[in-house]
Amino acid sequence: MTKTLFLFIVVIIFVSSYGDLKGQERAIPVNISLFNESTAIPFTRFFSTPAHPGILVGTEFNYKEKEHSRLFQTANISYFYHNYLAQGAGINTELGYERTLKSGLAFEGLFGIGYMHTFATTEEFSFSDGQYLKKTDKGNARLFPSFSIDIGYYLKKGEINNGKIFIRYQLWAEYPYSPDFIPVMTHVNLHVGAKFFINKKAKKND
């Protein structure tokens, strides 16, 4: 797991830098992160074991941008696998605010809302006509609000398409979870990821 994480970090630093090499033209930002999902009460745990892997891919655009801050919107798709409990695929959007320092360090806060479809990770039996039968799992629809904070580092200060690596602590809720039993389930995702840019012009020439 540690080796995979290390390899991932090396790859994202390379990819983040690659975006910058394509030139200074404004390109599409792409956020990609690997995360560890856990069922947990917010702010009680930073990292939990066993690890339940997940991946997020997204993009973002700015509403307002100043020298050291910006207000932006994200759009993401994500997937997680929680052993024995559930796996889920979701789409969401977040309103984010970022503050950057001269050193390249950046701090973000993001409020999000999205839709998630979860599926059982173990065999499921459905009750029908007085008996339980194996059935294809159609999954469960969920609303998933989220709040994230992250700390990142811009690799090449002063450039427009500046790649960034980040660690993100994301709190999210799964609703409805189990009506009249557990109404809401809370989760914590710890992300390690990067932002890089896909240069449209460069892509065309490829």
Binding site: A120, F127, N140, S178
Partner: peptide, 17 residues
């Protein structure tokens, strides 16, 4: 053992839980 985790009578095995 089986649990109706999501209150929909779709049960998951929980023998080891």
């Amino acid at each position: 053992g089986y649990i109706d985790m999501y209150s929909n009578l779709q049960v998951l095995e929980s023998t080891y839980f």
